[in-house]
Write a protein that binds this DNA or RNA. Sequence first.
DNA 1: TCCTCATATTTGTCCTGGACAAATACGCCA
DNA 2: TGGCGTATTTGTCCAGGACAAATATGAGGA
Lengths: 296, 296
Amino acid sequence: MERDCGLPKDTLRVWERRYGFPKPLRDHHGERIYPADQVATLRLLRRLVDAGHRPGKVVGRSGEDLSVLLRQVGTPALQAIGSEAQQVMTLLGAHDAAGLREVLNAIVLRAGLGAFAAEVGPGLAEAVGTAWWRGALEIHQEHLFTEQFTTVLRSAINAAQGAGLPRRRPRVLFSTIPQEPHSLGLLMAEAMFTLEGCLGISLGVQTPIPEIAAAARAHKADILALSFSSMIPAPQAVAGLAELRAHIPDTVEIWAGGACPGLRPKPGVSVLRALSAIGPAVTAWRAREDKGSTPE
Amino acid sequence: MERDCGLPKDTLRVWERRYGFPKPLRDHHGERIYPADQVATLRLLRRLVDAGHRPGKVVGRSGEDLSVLLRQVGTPALQAIGSEAQQVMTLLGAHDAAGLREVLNAIVLRAGLGAFAAEVGPGLAEAVGTAWWRGALEIHQEHLFTEQFTTVLRSAINAAQGAGLPRRRPRVLFSTIPQEPHSLGLLMAEAMFTLEGCLGISLGVQTPIPEIAAAARAHKADILALSFSSMIPAPQAVAGLAELRAHIPDTVEIWAGGACPGLRPKPGVSVLRALSAIGPAVTAWRAREDKGSTPE
DNA sequence: TCCTCATATTTGTCCTGGACAAATACGCCA
DNA sequence: TGGCGTATTTGTCCAGGACAAATATGAGGA
């Protein structure tokens, strides 16, 4: 059930106790049955809470009230989106998967893989994310975008890897912590490192922390690249990074990036604010490495 | 915490109450802190329980006892794996991502995409899965396999789609229910449908059921293809299929497949036991469609 | 008027211990 | 030996209480 509206079971329970909503029916044994309309209202509530409303102020109000509030939130962001994003939103509205892929491919060819991954990609992802929690987009449309974007970007990365550019260190290991299921940020980072000629190995998302550490050792990684989306609570990101840092040797650097607001550099953990920072950071790493390996 | 050993919080609690294990430390406030060695033992326990052992018989025994039991389980399966699988296991053992990708690509080229997706892929996936829960493979090695396999297969699918073969109906929508995070089965199915010249649209994994239904309508899908891995409890798969069937129009067929043992055909839900069954099934669908559209 | 800091309120998550239905094993009879 | 009814095991839910972190509120000073 909590999967259907994005709210943990404990939260549903305590809302019911404190605010009198939701008011689920009970089956013959006494278990909660959430009617479809209450689930729909809960979904609205989740978005409002994510947008900054206090549960005490909005839980218990009618679905119509909530829709009104939802429309007031986030509308300003709508004006600022670029022309690519508008085109993408139109195609998503028309459920045109093939057209979407064509447009994305065209952007890669026109702007290049670097600009696509570092500039256009994050912009599109943010526009889609915003549109989703404004209610302008269904979840399945967001899934469709993610799928097409992934396909296009991965095939571009493959092409870049096969291009015969000499691959050399740093050896970079990509993954996310178990609480982070989003793969787009990781893939965009992989693109940037690939363009720098790095040796990249991806574990995909949601690898347990001891396993990331074990993999870093097994693959003799120089850099561990972690991606944190804006959906992940900042404390979890910080805790994950600290745990990871404690598990792996100091010779392995940890580079964290993504839209997560609470990300802060720590000893042994670099934070790259933007994907465009990857190029210079790799150059700096190589300079350090050359100096360090010079016999004194 | 439950994320780290794959056991729900409630289960950990009740094991603690009934069997006296785990015995977590408490922080200053009284919250449970699971030491690393207990987490490791819990991971062993999870595998044993998955393999059929009763919790009452194994929870509370020492880690060494459990390792012995784990070795006894599943060893017979080891002998039967093919030479490709042995090669893959060797490469995984050496953490050789590039070599793994080369081998997979070579299989695609030698055997063709159809045989790769329908025969080799499931065999490899099973071998890797078995090796994992036997303890012969780390989780990060399984992640590495999944990532490389996905990359190779997706790029082969892209090539097939771009090959200029005329695409025509049925229009197939791919996804999995929210409880099913595994994407390999879905991707192999997508390959098979692509080879038949179908129009495929993937939503990726873990789409909420009402959203799958909405997408089926929006995309005017003829067939909804769902994948169920062997890890998903059969009742959840059956319930998900029933709910889905109730949400979408009868004109949309539901085809389910995968290694999930409890999968049974129902009215309006076909079950394809093997990926090789997709080709004939598509042919049959087209025959039905042609007959149906003939003016009487 | 605006900013800063201390206090009050809100909110999510964890706690304990009890209950029960589904799944599984066991024993009986043909 | 095999099928079936009963006993046990097992996972998940329930209720209400507690507390720390997050957030809002208000007082005092520049």
